[in-house]
Simulated scan of single mutants.
Amino acid sequence: MKVMDERRRKLNFRAWRRGFREMDLIMGQFADQHIGAMSENELQEFERLLATPDWEVYAWIVGNKPVPPNYAGPVLDRLLSFEYDPRA
């Protein structure tokens, strides 16, 4: 098993501690599955998403609000189509 570098480890930690349970599950499981293969640009995009208020990102995920063009990108596209396990 490849050891996760410190930056990815910290991002993964932040993904699992969002502020409300649903976002913990979505962002945490997404990070567990994708962060190890993210490029530098994708890591920057993921960091930006983690810095965005949870309720805003959640509204994009559930389709209550459109994604602003300045947030569109490959990581968010994958997150929007990600199917998490709500029972985890």
Rank of each mutant, 00 (worst) to 15 (best):
V62E: 09
L79M: 07
H34V: 00
F30P: 00
G19W: 04
Y84H: 15
D24L: 05
R21L: 14
D32C: 03
W16R: 09
L11A: 06
N70G: 08
N12H: 12
D85N: 15
R18T: 07
T52P: 10
R8K: 12
M4E: 08
Q44F: 07
F13W: 15
A15W: 00
E40Q: 13
P68K: 03
Q29V: 11
E45F: 08
Q29K: 04
G36E: 05
L50C: 09
L25Y: 08
P69G: 11
N70I: 11
L79D: 03
R87H: 15
N64R: 14
D54C: 10
D5Y: 03
I35M: 04
N70K: 13
R87N: 14
E22W: 05
D54T: 03
L25H: 01
P86V: 04
L11G: 03
R78Y: 02
L25R: 01
T52Q: 13
S39T: 15
L50I: 06
Y71Q: 14
M1L: 13
A88Q: 08
A72Y: 07
G28M: 06
F20H: 13
R8Y: 02
E56Q: 15
L25I: 11
A51R: 13
Q44A: 12
P86I: 08
F30A: 01
E6I: 06
E22I: 12
N12V: 07
P53G: 03
P74N: 01
M1H: 14
D5G: 02
E45Q: 09
V57M: 05
L76R: 07
L76G: 13
A15R: 02
R21Q: 07
K2T: 07
Q44L: 12
R21S: 13
W16G: 11
F13C: 09
Q44T: 13
G19A: 06
D77E: 14
N70F: 15
E45K: 02
Q29M: 06
P86L: 11
E45T: 04
R9G: 10
L80I: 07
A88L: 05
R9H: 12
D32H: 05
